[in-house]
Nucleic acid binder design. Structure first.
Length: 283
DNA sequence: AGCAGCTCCTGTACGC
DNA sequence: TGCGTACAGGAGCTGC
């Protein structure tokens, strides 16, 4: 599923590929439910004739800035992908079904950008100010920014010390960008059990966790994100992410732990699979 | 406050 | 072979 590294991968590619292009036409097929605001009619009308000024990211949201000052905000949800330049052959080669194309932006140079989303958990917004997107307004700190220091991390942890560390890391209101895959990886590498209460973490563990969050996210961006097992993430060329080979626990149940050899276990936490080594990550 | 459980959705895997 | 069912999960929601 697209988390910070996958979304950043898409942003970087789009920055290179569609910046300064002008939208000539817009087609929205089954996007009615995906478009959160404004109305689908307004959404389409207001995109036409606008030029792409810049591409930003906030947490797992891609923010496409238009020359009008408006922002086209895209959340990829579970299975959302953006293909550019669009070509039926690419989809066929990569096993992507075009029946899930929900939005097309056709540029004045006749190239086309397509948003495809099998499970339709993705979300689209067109707003003048980001504050209009409530879920973005609530997002916590960006873990890769310089302002995210270990001291700041400790301070945020103190707000929620009664909770479990995995729930905390999954919650976008504290630190934004981590999802199930990277939370599993980071906790494994830091040797911390996902159900550990935050207050029980030692200074040493907090320090390791902080380092691993930064290291893993950066490495994953370097590799162009991850496409794990049946997950759907693709870059804008429809290709899978390269970080999957470096994933150590996620979807590795019953395989030997790379650190101690004990089989990786899977438990459920808040309805999500959690992969861990019971030997290296003690409760 | 924190967490369980449900919802949205479709493709895939599995049991019979 | 084919059907029914469970499962995958980001995020928002209800309810205990």
């Amino acid at each position: 599923m697209p988390e910070l590294p996958e979304v950043e991968t898409v942003r970087i590619e789009l920055q290179r590929k569609i910046k300064d292009k002008k939208i000539e036409n817009v087609m929205a097929g089954e996007a009615k439910k995906i478009i959160q605001k404004p109305s689908p009619e307004q959404f389409i009308a207001r995109l036409k004739g606008k030029r792409i000024a810049d591409l930003n990211r906030r947490g797992k949201y891609i923010i496409i800035c238009l020359d009008s000052g408006e922002k086209l905000v895209v959340h990829l949800g579970m299975t959302g992908i953006i293909i550019y330049p669009y070509d039926d052959k690419i989809l066929q080669e990569k096993g992507i079904n075009p029946k899930h194309n929900h939005l097309s932006l056709i540029f004045t140079d006749h190239t086309q950008l397509v948003f495809n989303d099998v499970r339709r958990f993705g979300k689209l917004y067109l707003v003048s100010n980001l504050e209009e997107v409530e879920s973005i307004d609530k997002l916590g700190i960006e873990p890769l920014e310089d302002s995210f220091t270990q001291e700041v991390f400790q301070k945020i942890l103190n707000i929620k010390k009664k909770g479990k560390i995995k729930s905390f890391l999954m919650n976008q209101e504290f630190i934004t960008g981590l999802g199930n895959i990277y939370v599993n990886e980071v906790l494994f590498r830091a040797n911390i059990h996902p159900l550990r209460p935050i207050y029980s973490l030692t200074q040493e563990e907090v320090s390791r966790l902080y380092q691993e969050i930064r290291t893993v996210l950066k490495a994953a961006i370097e590799c162009g994100g991850s496409t794990v097992a049946d997950e759907a993430f693709r870059n804008t060329n429809g290709e899978k992410g390269g970080f999957v080979q470096k994933i150590q626990v996620y979807a590795h149940q019953n395989e030997p732990c790379i650190k101690c050899g004990h089989p990786i276990e899977v438990i459920r936490i808040e309805g999500r699979s959690s992969f861990l080594c019971p030997q290296c990550q003690k409760l």
